[in-house]
């Protein structure tokens, strides 16, 4: 079983330390951790550090990944690409990185079923420059899932999606985490999504870890007040699920 443990992890850009002291208990396979916190708190920096794309103090322990398999995939925040590539080509590209030039029938079938699962088969022949922001996010998600990683880091993957797509994508990621026993860390702004789909919450504020725990214990009125500077509370809604109710910003 794959596991991920962070021990005093921080991130440095040049001499500037932008994140410090992120320590978690062992995060186990098949779980989803919401990484939450205000804008510019250091969520992307944490992901880049875990993915090995930034340096800094502390240790990232990844254990139990069978040799030859993809340990980790990182989906950065959405960027606009001008490449003259179709959606299908861009997913092939992600699948084949570091591998042979020839694309096998099996790889093509894998991409077919992934695009179908994300319900973007009809986008396959479109050029990347023709896509809307939300469509680009779906393609990005396909690019990271096709590598069959054991750990998936997603930086605000639903920020440009409509409500239906948000639920669809989060539902898919949740079921993949369960089926493939994948560890998912996902940066989210919508705390109700964190409550609805994630097991744990890792709260980052002002470049430090504020809290780590189960979503139900972590997301409460204190968090809203201290970290988000918002007056509100969490209550059970008519579907008997916890829901964040917001009142007003605190100045």
């Amino acid at each position: 079983m794959v596991s991920l443990t962070l021990e005093g992890v921080g991130t440095r850009y040049g001499r500037k330390q932008v994140l410090a002291d992120v320590t978690t208990p062992t995060i186990t396979a098949g779980t989803m951790t919401a990484v939450i916190g205000p804008n510019a708190a250091g969520k992307s920096s944490l992901f880049r550090r875990i993915a090995g794309m930034a340096s800094g103090p502390g240790e990232v322990h990844i254990e139990g990944v069978p040799s030859g398999e993809q340990a980790l995939a990182y989906l950065p925040q959405d960027t606009n690409a001008t490449a003259v590539l179709t959606v299908f080509e861009s997913v092939v590209l992600a699948a084949k990185q570091g591998r042979s030039l020839k694309v096998s029938e099996e790889e093509l079938r894998d991409i077919d079923s992934l695009l179908a699962a994300l319900r973007i088969t009809e986008l396959a022949s479109r050029y990347l420059s023709e896509l809307s922001g939300g469509q680009r996010q779906l393609v990005g998600i396909a690019q990271s899932l096709i590598r069959r990683p054991h750990i998936l880091l997603m930086d605000e993957p639903t920020s440009a999606l409509d409500l239906h797509r948000q639920m669809e994508v989060l539902g898919l990621v949740r079921s993949l985490a369960d089926e493939r026993q994948m560890i998912v860390m996902i940066a989210l702004h919508d705390l109700n999504h964190a409550l609805g789909y994630c097991d744990h919450a890792l709260v980052i504020a002002n470049g430090r870890m504020h809290r780590f725990g189960s979503c139900n214990d972590t997301i409460d009125q204190h968090l809203l007040r201290e970290v988000y500077r918002v007056d509100g509370h969490v209550e059970l809604n008519s579907l008997n699920r916890p829901q964040v109710v917001l009142n007003a910003p605190i100045y």
């Binding site: 299908f88 992934l114 179908a116 088969t121 539902g171 898919l172 079921s175 789909y197």
Partner: peptide, 18 residues
């Protein structure tokens, strides 16, 4: 909440993209 996920091997009837 238990998420009603979309099965990964659920290939749509549309002609395959490949």
């Amino acid at each position: 909440m238990s998420a009603e996920g979309v099965a990964v091997n659920d290939v749509s009837p549309i002609a395959s993209a490949s």
